[in-house]
Amino acid sequence: MSEPTGVIHDIGYQRYTGLRLGRRHVFGALWLHGLRTIFGLGRSAKAKIFPWLVIGIVTLVAAGLTAVRSQTGQVVMTYAQFADAMSWLVIFFAAVAAPELVSRDLRSGVLPLYFSRPLPRGDYALAKLLALVAGLWLLLGGPQLVMFLGAAFTTGDGLGGVRDELFDLLPGLLYAGLWAVVFASVGLLVASLTGKRAFAAGGVVAVFLMTTPIVGVLSILPSRTINELAMLASPSTVVQGVGLFTLGVQLAPPGAADQMIGDFGPVYALGAVLLAAACVALLLLRYRKVAAR
């Protein structure tokens, strides 16, 4: 049979008279697309390896902590301490995810196809940013939830114990959210500067890891004020500073917070806000330029 099947099914061009969704829906679709990209969903098996390896590690650590706690009754790590301990993994995760989100689009030249559509150029950048924030938050928050469920089911204090545990979890989730916002905004900004994914990944890691020695140097200078402000020098330590300020003993032994940041807690909070805001502003500025090209 060599029937011209193309002709049989050719019913001619049909105009589209259906629904056209507004800006919010398009934003949501782009956000979800970004979130799926981060975890390699809808992409090749190769693209899934790294994200799911990291997810495996953090979940395993969380499961291990839960197991130890249920056996010994000792809280090895609080929710916030868990977020701190996993931060280096989050750095690498962001360093791989951010270039996937933005550098790939820059390189392939697909951006004119986005910007010739109703979606405002700022929406593109913000949807990608929120996708990365959500991705990083899930990466930390998911295991925290595992820890919570483990603790809630093994608590000996009934419903009251579950409630206490929940009040421990919520600040932990918020703290994880802070990690996510800061890492995502810094990481995405760095990645948006280049179309080469390897450079972008290296750049993201460099920004986080190369600034840490500066903190080390500043913290041993012979000035207490400088020592207490030292953690402002690196994005990761800024977040830790905010954690020490707001969560205190949940994150560090009693007295340690005072030792490390002194009375500068509000400065750290302001620093974190300014850092994220500056990165978002620069990101939007960056895409103003890209869109006009």
Partner: peptide, 18 residues
């Protein structure tokens, strides 16, 4: 611009496909 772009289709000159 959004109203215009909703009713316009654009094919760029350069390579634009991932």
């Amino acid at each position: 611009p959004a109203a215009v772009r909703a009713r316009v289709g654009y094919m760029p000159e350069h390579d634009a496909l991932p």
